[in-house]
C-alpha cells in the first residue's frame, strides 16, 4: 500500500502541493470567480422578479381600466334605459290624453243623442195623448152622444195611460 509505504518520504510534498493548489482553487476560483457567477444569477433572478412585478402591475392596471370601463358601460346602459323608459312614459301619457279626449267627445255625442231621443219620445207621447184625447171625445160623442170637454177627456186618457 503505497499510501503507507511512501508516507515518510512523500507526506510533506503531498501536503505542500495540496495546500498550494487547493489554496489557488479557493482564492482564485472560490473567492474570485464564484461570487461573480452567483452575482450574475442574483442579477438574473432580480431581473426576472422585476419583470414579473412589472407584468403584474400592468395586468392590475388593465383590470382596473376594465373595471372602470365596466362601470361606465353600466352607467351608459342605465342612462339609455332611463331615456327609453321616459320616452315610453311620455308616449303612454300622450296616447292616454288623446283617448280621454276622444272618450269625452263620444260621451258628449252620446248624451246629445240620448237627449234628442228623449225629446222625440216625449213629443211622440204628447202627440199620442192628443190623438187619444180627440179619439176618446169622438168615441164618447158617437157612442153616448155626450159632449165631453177636452180637459175631462185628457184627464181620463192620462189615467188610462198611467194605468197602462
Amino acid at each position: 500500500m503505497p499510501q503507507i509505504a511512501q508516507l515518510a518520504e512523500t507526506w510533506s510534498s503531498q501536503v505542500f502541493w495540496l495546500l498550494v493548489f487547493f489554496g489557488i482553487t479557493f482564492f482564485v476560483i472560490g473567492k474570485g470567480m464564484v461570487p461573480k457567477v452567483m452575482e450574475t444569477v442574483a442579477q438574473r433572478d432580480g431581473q426576472i422578479a422585476a419583470d414579473l412585478a412589472a407584468a403584474k402591475a400592468a395586468r392590475d392596471a388593465a383590470d382596473e381600466q376594465e373595471e372602470a370601463w365596466r362601470v361606465r358601460e353600466n352607467e351608459n346602459r342605465a342612462a339609455a334605459q332611463a331615456i327609453v323608459a321616459k320616452a315610453k312614459d311620455e308616449a303612454a301619457a300622450r296616447s292616454e290624453t288623446k283617448l280621454k279626449a276622444a272618450q269625452t267627445r263620444l260621451d258628449k255625442k252620446l248624451s246629445e243623442a240620448e237627449t234628442r231621443i228623449a225629446e222625440a219620445r216625449a213629443a211622440a207621447l204628447t202627440e199620442v195623448e192628443t190623438v187619444a184625447v180627440e179619439a176618446a171625445q169622438d168615441i164618447v160623442k158617437t157612442v153616448a152622444g155626450l159632449k165631453v170637454t177636452k180637459p175631462t177627456a185628457s184627464k181620463a186618457v192620462k189615467e188610462a195611460m198611467a194605468n197602462g
Binding site: 510533506s12 510534498s13 503531498q14 502541493w17 489557488i24 482553487t25 457567477v37
Partner: peptide
C-alpha cells in the same frame, strides 16, 4: 521538508486548471 513535484502534485495542478477553465466558461455573465 521534501516538496518534490510528484505525479500526485501534477494531477492536483491538472485538477486546478481544469476546474479553473470550467468555472471560467461560466463567467460570461
Amino acid at each position: 521538508y521534501n516538496i518534490a513535484f510528484t505525479n500526485s502534485a501534477l494531477w492536483m495542478l491538472i485538477t486546478t486548471v481544469v476546474l479553473f477553465l470550467f468555472v471560467l466558461g461560466g463567467m460570461k455573465r
